[in-house]
Design a protein around this nucleic acid. Structure first.
Lengths: 227, 227
DNA sequence: GTCTATACAATGATAGAC
DNA sequence: GTCTATCATTGTATAGAC
């Protein structure tokens, strides 16, 4: 319930912990990992329904029925990706939402962490994010809502305290989701070229649009880097 | 080549011009229009591949084979939606890109127009936008690129002139695409509840993040409203 | 844990009557 | 312009040998 989630520099190696029995961090990925990675990549390009289990199997270099030894159904693959997409980010967002620092600092810190997480993730989580509006995966909505709620808390705190300009919190929440979603489709699954720079640039973009005194941005960035 | 495209208050009635022979603007939609509207709605929820021609036909209150009298193939429906998504917005973006006003004013004007267009559109263009990264529709990429280029021009003009802060133009371009895409998935196909307010709020958000002097925003909004 | 063979439902699209 | 009937293909998933 209270295990400290990853921080920018520390963990954030998304997808590890997916290990089977042996092989703690060898470079040769297990079949299960290969399926997950290739499925994520294909889902991102052609969509969940547009990708067949045959294509996934071929990309993972196994025969199609062999896939069902690792995942009971096709949608179990998607659910595994949704787990990766939600678990850690939700933990970090909730921790920041409950923190006592200024809202601007908390929001910046969460955004920068999440964007870096996305960029570093070895799975392309595009589909895991866009599938959240598919009725077939409605059972996953509540988990997503917890993340949305944590973000909303930070935004509303900032508006209430006067740190942010007086805009519609729902609209800001939406724009932030759109930026995160965009970043996912832009750089997820590409390893981590410039994860930290992208994180700073995008989080700064959002904060510039929100801060009543934009000159505070550099102070916030310095505090985030120090803490 | 030079027909003046719609302005905020004037046309922007997306989807008209799709008329068949008679019936210039009656309230009872033709079968073709019904197919297009229902397909757009279903594509947005379950994706292009996740939506069967049978579902579309059922929603349009016809039998499945009857659909093929109006569209030769399933992907012809999608192509028709892509047309609606690209034609007018590209015309407006290119006009603003070539205009002689300040970059900030041009970008605000284009953004506000496009967002209002999206909100007012009777078709949910979510899928038409996201399908642009599907190899199966690669033949449509070049058309989309023309829109991207026009937007890039405005952004680079603003950075060069010093109106905008010195950020990576590619990153800004991306964020703007993400905001437009988000707005599409958020309010496309819902008629037009608060189109102009949403347009102003979102365009203002983007401009606040970009303007070196955020105080100029009100002046720009006033100029846009006047012109 | 991976394979071959296959069951069986759903898909996009066509033929031809009215 | 819409219908019924139907085709060929592809989809997910299972059975059972190795």
């Amino acid at each position: 319930m209270d295990d400290p989630p990853a921080r920018p520099g520390s963990l954030g190696q998304c997808g590890k912990g997916e290990m089977t029995t042996a092989a703690i961090d060898t470079d040769i990925p297990s079949t299960r990992e290969r399926i997950l990675r290739e499925a994520a990549r294909l889902f991102a390009v052609k969509g969940y329904y547009g990708t067949s289990t045959r294509e996934i199997a071929a990309a993972a270099h196994i025969q199609q029925p062999s896939m069902f030894h690792h995942f009971p159904t096709k949608d179990a693959i998607m659910t595994a990706l949704i787990d990766i997409n939600l678990d850690e980010p939700t933990a970090v967002a909730r921790r920041e939402a409950a923190s006592e620092d200024s809202a601007a600092l908390r929001l910046y810190r969460y955004l920068a962490w999440d964007i870096a997480f996305i960029c570093r993730c070895e799975y392309d989580l595009t589909s895991a994010e866009s599938i959240m509006s598919d009725p077939a995966f409605a059972s996953q909505y509540p988990r997503y809502e917890r993340l949305v709620e944590a973000r909303r808390t930070m935004i509303e705190d900032g508006i209430r305290s006067g740190e942010f300009v007086d805009v519609d919190p729902d609209l800001v929440q939406k724009v932030i989701v759109w930026i995160l979603r965009g970043d996912i489709s832009d750089c997820a699954g590409k390893g981590a070229p410039g994860a930290d720079e992208t994180a700073d640039e995008l989080a700064s973009f959002a904060l510039r649009a929100l801060l009543r005194g934009p000159s505070r941005l550099d102070e916030i960035r310095a505090l985030a880097k120090a803490g």
